[in-house]
Protein backbone atom coordinates (compact mmCIF):
# COMPACT_ATOMS: atom_id res chain seq x y z
CA UNK A 1 0.00 0.00 0.00
CA UNK A 2 1.18 3.54 -0.67
CA UNK A 3 2.36 5.70 2.19
CA UNK A 4 -0.74 7.87 1.96
CA UNK A 5 -3.61 5.43 2.46
CA UNK A 6 -6.12 7.93 1.25
CA UNK A 7 -4.55 8.10 -2.25
CA UNK A 8 -5.40 5.50 -4.83
CA UNK A 9 -2.31 3.34 -5.25
CA UNK A 10 -0.50 3.69 -8.58
CA UNK A 11 0.55 0.43 -10.19
CA UNK A 12 4.15 0.95 -9.22
CA UNK A 13 3.30 1.64 -5.60
CA UNK A 14 1.38 -1.61 -5.17
CA UNK A 15 4.05 -3.60 -6.97
CA UNK A 16 6.47 -5.77 -5.17
CA UNK A 17 9.51 -7.14 -6.98
CA UNK A 18 8.89 -10.69 -8.28
CA UNK A 19 9.96 -13.24 -5.71
CA UNK A 20 13.62 -13.42 -6.66
CA UNK A 21 13.90 -16.97 -5.42
CA UNK A 22 11.28 -18.31 -7.88
CA UNK A 23 12.58 -16.32 -10.84
CA UNK A 24 16.14 -17.17 -9.84
CA UNK A 25 15.12 -20.83 -9.69
CA UNK A 26 13.78 -20.61 -13.25
CA UNK A 27 16.96 -18.88 -14.44
CA UNK A 28 19.22 -21.38 -12.68
CA UNK A 29 18.27 -24.06 -15.13
CA UNK A 30 19.23 -22.03 -18.17
CA UNK A 31 21.85 -23.81 -20.27
CA UNK A 32 25.06 -21.99 -21.06
CA UNK A 33 25.01 -20.78 -24.67
CA UNK A 34 28.73 -21.31 -25.25
CA UNK A 35 28.49 -24.87 -23.93
CA UNK A 36 25.56 -25.63 -26.22
CA UNK A 37 27.46 -24.08 -29.14
CA UNK A 38 30.52 -26.23 -28.40
CA UNK A 39 28.36 -29.33 -28.10
CA UNK A 40 26.68 -28.75 -31.46
CA UNK A 41 29.99 -27.98 -33.18
CA UNK A 42 31.55 -31.13 -31.72
CA UNK A 43 28.62 -33.21 -32.93
CA UNK A 44 28.94 -31.77 -36.44
CA UNK A 45 32.68 -32.39 -36.42
CA UNK A 46 32.13 -36.03 -35.39
CA UNK A 47 29.55 -36.37 -38.14
CA UNK A 48 31.91 -34.92 -40.72
CA UNK A 49 34.79 -37.11 -39.58
CA UNK A 50 32.65 -40.21 -39.90
CA UNK A 51 31.82 -39.47 -43.54
CA UNK A 52 33.94 -39.93 -46.62
CA UNK A 53 35.00 -37.02 -48.81
CA UNK A 54 32.17 -37.67 -51.28
CA UNK A 55 29.52 -38.23 -48.64
CA UNK A 56 29.19 -34.69 -47.27
CA UNK A 57 26.06 -33.55 -45.48
CA UNK A 58 24.08 -31.00 -47.44
CA UNK A 59 23.03 -27.70 -45.87
CA UNK A 60 19.57 -28.89 -44.94
CA UNK A 61 20.96 -31.99 -43.18
CA UNK A 62 23.41 -29.83 -41.27
CA UNK A 63 20.59 -27.58 -40.14
CA UNK A 64 18.66 -30.65 -39.03
CA UNK A 65 21.62 -31.88 -37.04
CA UNK A 66 21.81 -28.48 -35.34
CA UNK A 67 18.10 -28.57 -34.57
CA UNK A 68 18.43 -32.11 -33.27
CA UNK A 69 21.22 -31.20 -30.88
CA UNK A 70 19.33 -28.12 -29.75
CA UNK A 71 16.29 -30.31 -29.12
CA UNK A 72 18.36 -32.65 -27.00
CA UNK A 73 19.45 -29.61 -25.02
CA UNK A 74 15.85 -28.46 -24.56
CA UNK A 75 14.74 -31.89 -23.31
CA UNK A 76 17.66 -31.85 -20.89
CA UNK A 77 16.68 -28.37 -19.74
CA UNK A 78 13.10 -29.47 -19.10
CA UNK A 79 14.23 -32.67 -17.39
CA UNK A 80 16.50 -30.77 -15.00
CA UNK A 81 13.77 -28.33 -14.00
CA UNK A 82 12.53 -28.82 -10.43
CA UNK A 83 9.00 -27.93 -11.56
CA UNK A 84 9.11 -30.50 -14.36
CA UNK A 85 10.38 -33.12 -11.96
CA UNK A 86 7.15 -32.73 -10.01
CA UNK A 87 5.36 -34.41 -12.93
CA UNK A 88 5.32 -38.10 -13.78
CA UNK A 89 7.34 -39.15 -16.82
CA UNK A 90 4.09 -39.85 -18.68
CA UNK A 91 3.01 -36.25 -18.28
CA UNK A 92 6.51 -34.99 -19.08
CA UNK A 93 6.38 -36.92 -22.36
CA UNK A 94 2.95 -35.66 -23.30
CA UNK A 95 3.89 -32.03 -22.65
CA UNK A 96 7.16 -32.26 -24.60
CA UNK A 97 5.51 -34.11 -27.48
CA UNK A 98 3.06 -31.25 -27.70
CA UNK A 99 5.44 -28.29 -27.46
CA UNK A 100 8.87 -29.43 -28.65
CA UNK A 101 8.72 -27.46 -31.90
CA UNK A 102 7.47 -24.34 -30.07
CA UNK A 103 10.45 -24.60 -27.73
CA UNK A 104 12.78 -24.87 -30.73
CA UNK A 105 11.20 -21.80 -32.38
CA UNK A 106 11.24 -19.79 -29.13
CA UNK A 107 14.84 -20.81 -28.47
CA UNK A 108 15.77 -19.75 -32.00
CA UNK A 109 13.95 -16.41 -31.60
CA UNK A 110 15.69 -15.63 -28.36
CA UNK A 111 19.02 -16.26 -30.02
CA UNK A 112 18.07 -13.82 -32.79
CA UNK A 113 17.08 -11.15 -30.25
CA UNK A 114 20.36 -11.58 -28.39
CA UNK A 115 22.90 -12.05 -31.18
CA UNK A 116 21.67 -11.68 -34.75
CA UNK A 117 22.89 -8.86 -36.98
CA UNK A 118 20.47 -6.93 -39.20
CA UNK A 119 19.25 -9.15 -42.04
CA UNK A 120 21.01 -12.19 -40.67
CA UNK A 121 20.06 -15.37 -38.91
CA UNK A 122 22.24 -16.33 -35.98
CA UNK A 123 22.82 -20.08 -35.73
CA UNK A 124 23.42 -22.04 -32.55
CA UNK A 125 26.96 -22.67 -33.84
CA UNK A 126 27.63 -18.95 -33.66
CA UNK A 127 27.54 -18.43 -37.46
CA UNK A 128 25.48 -15.66 -39.01
CA UNK A 129 23.76 -16.36 -42.32
CA UNK A 130 22.37 -13.64 -44.60
CA UNK A 131 18.63 -14.16 -44.86
CA UNK A 132 18.88 -13.25 -48.56
CA UNK A 133 21.19 -16.22 -49.12
CA UNK A 134 18.60 -18.58 -47.72
CA UNK A 135 15.70 -17.02 -49.58
CA UNK A 136 17.44 -17.41 -52.97
CA UNK A 137 17.50 -21.19 -52.46
CA UNK A 138 14.35 -21.69 -50.42
CA UNK A 139 11.03 -22.95 -51.68
CA UNK A 140 7.68 -21.31 -50.90
CA UNK A 141 7.15 -22.90 -47.49
CA UNK A 142 10.65 -22.27 -46.19
CA UNK A 143 10.55 -18.69 -47.47
CA UNK A 144 7.32 -18.11 -45.56
CA UNK A 145 8.75 -19.72 -42.43
CA UNK A 146 11.93 -17.67 -42.54
CA UNK A 147 10.13 -14.37 -43.10
CA UNK A 148 7.47 -15.06 -40.45
CA UNK A 149 10.17 -15.97 -37.94
CA UNK A 150 12.27 -12.95 -38.83
CA UNK A 151 9.25 -10.68 -38.41
CA UNK A 152 8.55 -12.17 -34.98
CA UNK A 153 12.19 -11.76 -34.05
CA UNK A 154 11.99 -8.05 -34.94
CA UNK A 155 8.86 -7.69 -32.75
CA UNK A 156 10.58 -9.34 -29.79
CA UNK A 157 13.64 -7.16 -30.28
CA UNK A 158 11.40 -4.10 -30.27
CA UNK A 159 9.86 -5.35 -27.02
CA UNK A 160 13.36 -5.67 -25.53
CA UNK A 161 12.72 -9.27 -24.53
CA UNK A 162 15.15 -10.11 -21.75
CA UNK A 163 16.40 -13.44 -20.46
CA UNK A 164 13.95 -13.56 -17.54
CA UNK A 165 11.02 -13.02 -19.88
CA UNK A 166 12.36 -15.57 -22.35
CA UNK A 167 12.64 -18.19 -19.61
CA UNK A 168 9.10 -17.44 -18.39
CA UNK A 169 7.77 -17.82 -21.95
CA UNK A 170 9.57 -21.17 -22.25
CA UNK A 171 7.88 -22.37 -19.08
CA UNK A 172 4.50 -21.09 -20.27
CA UNK A 173 4.96 -23.04 -23.52
CA UNK A 174 6.02 -26.20 -21.65
CA UNK A 175 3.44 -26.13 -18.86
CA UNK A 176 0.35 -26.06 -21.05
CA UNK A 177 -2.66 -27.48 -19.19
CA UNK A 178 -4.68 -27.64 -22.41
CA UNK A 179 -2.59 -30.53 -23.75
CA UNK A 180 -4.79 -33.57 -24.12
CA UNK A 181 -4.11 -36.65 -21.96
CA UNK A 182 -2.20 -34.73 -19.27
CA UNK A 183 -2.99 -36.57 -16.05
CA UNK A 184 -1.94 -34.05 -13.43
CA UNK A 185 -3.56 -31.07 -15.15
CA UNK A 186 -4.00 -29.18 -11.87
CA UNK A 187 -0.23 -29.26 -11.21
CA UNK A 188 0.48 -28.00 -14.71
CA UNK A 189 -2.07 -25.23 -14.23
CA UNK A 190 -0.54 -24.19 -10.92
CA UNK A 191 2.89 -23.86 -12.47
CA UNK A 192 1.49 -22.01 -15.46
CA UNK A 193 -0.34 -19.51 -13.21
CA UNK A 194 2.72 -18.97 -11.03
CA UNK A 195 4.99 -18.35 -14.02
CA UNK A 196 2.37 -16.09 -15.57
CA UNK A 197 2.20 -14.01 -12.40
CA UNK A 198 5.99 -13.87 -12.18
CA UNK A 199 6.26 -12.73 -15.81
CA UNK A 200 3.66 -10.02 -15.21
CA UNK A 201 5.36 -8.80 -12.04
CA UNK A 202 8.75 -8.84 -13.74
CA UNK A 203 7.63 -6.83 -16.78
CA UNK A 204 5.79 -4.26 -14.63
CA UNK A 205 8.74 -4.04 -12.26
CA UNK A 206 11.39 -3.64 -14.97
CA UNK A 207 9.25 -1.62 -17.40
CA UNK A 208 6.70 0.34 -15.34
CA UNK A 209 6.37 2.77 -18.22
CA UNK A 210 5.42 -0.06 -20.62
CA UNK A 211 2.38 -1.32 -18.82
CA UNK A 212 1.35 -3.55 -21.71
CA UNK A 213 4.62 -5.36 -22.22
CA UNK A 214 3.22 -8.39 -20.47
CA UNK A 215 0.21 -8.48 -22.81
CA UNK A 216 2.44 -7.94 -25.85
CA UNK A 217 4.68 -10.86 -24.84
CA UNK A 218 1.72 -13.20 -24.36
CA UNK A 219 0.38 -12.20 -27.77
CA UNK A 220 3.53 -13.68 -29.33
CA UNK A 221 2.77 -17.17 -28.00
CA UNK A 222 -0.01 -18.02 -30.53
CA UNK A 223 2.30 -16.74 -33.29
CA UNK A 224 5.07 -19.01 -32.04
CA UNK A 225 2.60 -21.89 -31.93
CA UNK A 226 1.47 -21.21 -35.49
CA UNK A 227 5.03 -21.01 -36.83
CA UNK A 228 5.99 -24.18 -34.97
CA UNK A 229 3.10 -26.11 -36.53
CA UNK A 230 4.24 -24.93 -39.95
CA UNK A 231 7.82 -25.98 -39.09
CA UNK A 232 6.59 -29.44 -38.11
CA UNK A 233 4.58 -29.82 -41.29
CA UNK A 234 7.52 -28.66 -43.38
CA UNK A 235 9.94 -31.01 -41.65
CA UNK A 236 7.50 -33.90 -41.97
CA UNK A 237 7.15 -33.34 -45.71
CA UNK A 238 10.93 -33.23 -46.04
CA UNK A 239 11.08 -36.39 -43.93
CA UNK A 240 8.70 -38.16 -46.31
CA UNK A 241 11.08 -37.19 -49.11
CA UNK A 242 13.91 -38.83 -47.19
CA UNK A 243 15.70 -35.53 -46.61
CA UNK A 244 15.88 -35.77 -42.83
CA UNK A 245 18.77 -37.58 -41.14
CA UNK A 246 17.35 -40.81 -39.66
CA UNK A 247 17.68 -41.97 -36.04
CA UNK A 248 17.33 -38.53 -34.56
CA UNK A 249 15.24 -37.12 -31.75
CA UNK A 250 13.78 -34.75 -34.35
CA UNK A 251 12.42 -37.58 -36.52
CA UNK A 252 11.16 -39.45 -33.49
CA UNK A 253 9.19 -36.43 -32.32
CA UNK A 254 7.79 -35.93 -35.82
CA UNK A 255 6.79 -39.60 -35.93
CA UNK A 256 5.10 -39.42 -32.55
CA UNK A 257 2.89 -36.62 -33.71
CA UNK A 258 2.03 -38.19 -37.02
CA UNK A 259 1.56 -41.78 -35.89
Amino acid sequence: PSSTPSSTPTPTSILTAPTPSFLAQLLEGEPDESQLCAKVLASLQREKASRGKHDRLNTFSIMCKMADQTLFGLVEWARNSALFKELKVEDQMVLLQSCWSELLVLDHLCRQVAYSREGCIYLVTGQQIEVSNILTQAGVTLTSLVSRTQDLGVKLKALHLDTQEFVCLKYLVLFNPDVKSVQDRRQVERTQERVNRTLMDHTLYTHPGHSDKFGQLLLRLPEIRSISLQVEEYLYQRHLLGDLPCNSLLTEMLHAKHS
Binding site: R79, V89, E90, M93, L96, Q97, E252, A256
Partner: peptide
Protein backbone atom coordinates in the same frame (compact mmCIF):
# COMPACT_ATOMS: atom_id res chain seq x y z
CA UNK B 1 2.28 -42.23 -29.44
CA UNK B 2 4.24 -43.00 -26.32
CA UNK B 3 5.49 -46.24 -27.82
CA UNK B 4 6.99 -44.24 -30.66
CA UNK B 5 8.92 -41.99 -28.32
CA UNK B 6 11.33 -44.55 -26.88
CA UNK B 7 14.25 -42.10 -27.14
CA UNK B 8 12.34 -39.33 -25.36
CA UNK B 9 11.32 -41.72 -22.61
CA UNK B 10 14.92 -42.86 -22.26
CA UNK B 11 16.14 -39.24 -22.01
CA UNK B 12 13.55 -38.43 -19.38
CA UNK B 13 13.88 -41.69 -17.49
CA UNK B 14 17.63 -42.19 -17.60
CA UNK B 15 19.43 -42.33 -14.33
CA UNK B 16 21.98 -39.48 -14.06
CA UNK B 17 24.59 -41.92 -12.85
CA UNK B 18 24.52 -44.02 -15.98
Amino acid sequence: KKKDNALLRYLLDKDDNT
